[in-house]
Each structure stands twice: as C-alpha cells, then as structure tokens.
Simulated scan of single mutants.
Amino acid sequence: MSAAAIVGTGFMGRVHAEALARIGVDVRGVVGSSPERAAAAGLGPVYANLAEMLDDDSVDVVHVCSPNHLHHAQVVAAMRAGKHVVCEKPLAMTPAQAQELCDLATERGLVNAVCFLSRFYPLCQTAAARVDDGSVGTVRMVSGHYLQDWLADAADWNWRVDPALGGQLRVVGDIGSHWLDLVSHVSGQRVESVLADLTTVYPNRDGVAVTTEDMAGVLLRFDGGARGVLTLSQVSPGRKNRLSFEVSGSAASLGWNSETPDQLWIGHRDEPNQALVRGDGDYPPGHAQGYPDAFKALFRAVYDAVDETAPCNAGYPTFDDGREQVLVGEAIAASARLGGWSPVRR
C-alpha cells in the first residue's frame, strides 16, 4: 500500500494519522508550524519543512490538514512534486484557487480528495442508494441543520474566527459545507440558488472584532426541482456536533443525524414508519460506527484509487466537489450581502 505524509499536527492531523494507521497506511512523517510542535504531537517522524517532505520519494500521498489559508499553496506544491493529495475542507479560499487546483490535478493525473467524510457513514450511503433506486420517489424537499456550541460564549476564540486564516465564511464554510455536500450526494441534486441570512452574535470576542458569522439560515433551490432549508450554528448550547438531514420524496422520506449514526429513519404515509439499524460495515450491528470510522472508509477508497485497485472518483469527494462547495459558499455570501436570491455561478 502507498505511503503518506501529513501537513498539520493539530486536531485534524491527529484524526488523519489515526485513520491511516487503522487501514494500514504508513505515515512517513509530518510537518507542523514548527519542528518542535510537530515533534510534540507525536504523530510520527518530523520533517524540517514542507520542501523536505515533498523531496521524500517514499511519500505517495500528502494529507493537507493545515489552517484554511494555507491549503491552496500547499496543495499546489504537493501536486507539482507529483504527490496525490487528500485535503481538508475548504479546498481553497476563492473559486479561482479552487479551479486552479482542479485543473492541476487533472493535468497531472493525480488522485485528489476533499474530506467531506459524512458521505462515508454506512447509512448515508444507504440513503443515497435508496434515492438512486427510486425508493423515495421524486425528491421534493431537503431540510436539516448542523449545530455546535463550541463558540457559544463571547470569550471563545479559535483561528477560524479570523477571516484571514479561516475565510470570509465561518459557520457556512466550516460545517455548512459538510451538510451541503452530504445532501447533494444523497439527493443526487446540486444547489442551484440560495437565499441566505448570516448573523454574527458576538461582533466582539474577548476584545477582538469579529466579522464572520455565528449562525446562518439558508433557503435552497436544487437543480432537480427540490427545495431546501438549512440552519447552521456554532452557538447552540448543548449541541456538540449534530448534523441532521431529512429528505422528503413523493413515495417516502429519509432522516439521519450524526448523533445516532447507526439508525436511518424511513417515513411512510400509509404504513408504519421504520427505523433501519445499520447491518453492515466494519463492526457488527450494535457496535457503534461513527466519526473515526467514516474517515477510515473515506481513506480506504482513496488509497484503493492510488494503488489502482479501484477506479478513481469511485464515490469519494474530489477536488471538483471541493470547488462546488466554494462556489455555493460564494453564492451564500452574495445572497446575504445583497438581500436576495443568488445563483451558484459555475
């Protein structure tokens, strides 16, 4: 199996390292903001800098887990060095940057992926299959939310609050992109236009001015005719990390949330509703399969493509999907700024 290296040694770097170890991928080394911090993370051997990592011919795949503003330059450097790339979202800070990365990946013929991991919960894949096989009929409505509470107090701070580091959109870019990618994957429809309301609850956090949003409400129109409603928040006490969606079709409905990932609700009009319990996956039913396992499944699909044991783009989110969410984010920002519906400009 191909070998990896990781850029970034914070939370996401640790998540990637653990998932790679669990599927048997050797991590040859890591790069941090400094060699000292990288060594302290204990994720593997430490490279002095990104250039040293990219000069290592034993590294086949680079995992970019650094702060958002660094993604574009680091991905470009990795691909120009001939490395396949797995990038945390957002893929880039602007549509132009995202397009450049898509073009470069195509030009170099490199495997590329963005970590929209929610697709790889087994019952999210089941939901997508049920929509695809016609079990739910015509998808009419998609609704849901992604709620967190880690920024619920005025004193809470993280680099993602700073638009220079995290981007102009925070709650939309950080967690909304996961929801939007997932529901597009499940419904088989792309977002066509949006009407958005963005709210900054704390315009000042611990003495620092804040311009990024804490909450968002978004109406959605999909290209297959469905309508959608999305609520996002990082200031909802008690909600640690709840992603929830419901797809309403002409024949049935499907509902899922990340806090009970092993159950899929199936709604009917003229017969009893159902709770489908996961029956396959890495663990037997009754043994919870969650967040770390979704990363493992995503990376397994990517490395199968790298090792040419499966086709590229076989179900995992690529740079094209990363670009898609950058474009949807741009439309949401434009809608909030202008106060009306805004199309997704592809």
Results as ranks from 00 to 15, higher is better:
residue 209 A to R: 08
residue 209 A to H: 03
residue 211 T to L: 07
residue 211 T to I: 09
residue 211 T to H: 07
residue 212 T to Q: 14
residue 213 E to C: 05
residue 213 E to F: 03
residue 214 D to W: 05
residue 214 D to S: 13
residue 214 D to I: 08
residue 214 D to H: 15
residue 215 M to H: 14
residue 218 V to P: 14
residue 219 L to R: 02
residue 220 L to D: 02
residue 220 L to Y: 02
residue 221 R to M: 08
residue 221 R to H: 11
residue 222 F to P: 02
residue 223 D to T: 04
residue 223 D to H: 09
residue 224 G to A: 03
residue 224 G to N: 04
residue 225 G to R: 10
residue 226 A to N: 04
residue 228 G to M: 08
residue 228 G to Q: 08
residue 229 V to M: 07
residue 230 L to R: 12
residue 230 L to Q: 13
residue 230 L to P: 13
residue 231 T to Q: 09
residue 231 T to P: 02
residue 231 T to I: 03
residue 232 L to W: 03
residue 232 L to S: 05
residue 233 S to T: 10
residue 234 Q to R: 15
residue 234 Q to L: 14
residue 234 Q to S: 10
residue 236 S to V: 04
residue 236 S to I: 01
residue 236 S to K: 12
residue 236 S to M: 13
residue 236 S to G: 03
residue 237 P to K: 08
residue 237 P to G: 06
residue 239 R to C: 13
residue 240 K to A: 10
residue 241 N to L: 11
residue 241 N to H: 15
residue 242 R to E: 10
residue 242 R to V: 12
residue 242 R to Q: 07
residue 242 R to M: 04
residue 243 L to C: 01
residue 243 L to Y: 00
residue 244 S to G: 12
residue 244 S to C: 13
residue 244 S to E: 14
residue 245 F to P: 00
residue 245 F to T: 03
residue 246 E to C: 05
residue 246 E to P: 00
residue 246 E to G: 04
residue 247 V to Q: 02
residue 250 S to M: 06
residue 252 A to G: 07
residue 252 A to Q: 08
residue 253 S to A: 15
residue 254 L to I: 05
residue 254 L to G: 02
residue 254 L to K: 00
residue 257 N to Y: 03
residue 257 N to K: 03
residue 257 N to I: 04
residue 258 S to T: 14
residue 258 S to I: 10
residue 258 S to F: 03
residue 259 E to W: 06
residue 259 E to K: 07
residue 259 E to D: 12
residue 260 T to A: 11
residue 260 T to V: 11
residue 262 D to N: 11
residue 262 D to I: 06
residue 263 Q to D: 15
residue 263 Q to R: 15
residue 264 L to E: 00
residue 267 G to R: 13
residue 267 G to V: 09
residue 267 G to Y: 12
residue 268 H to C: 02
residue 268 H to I: 06
residue 268 H to E: 05
residue 269 R to A: 15
residue 269 R to W: 06
residue 270 D to I: 01
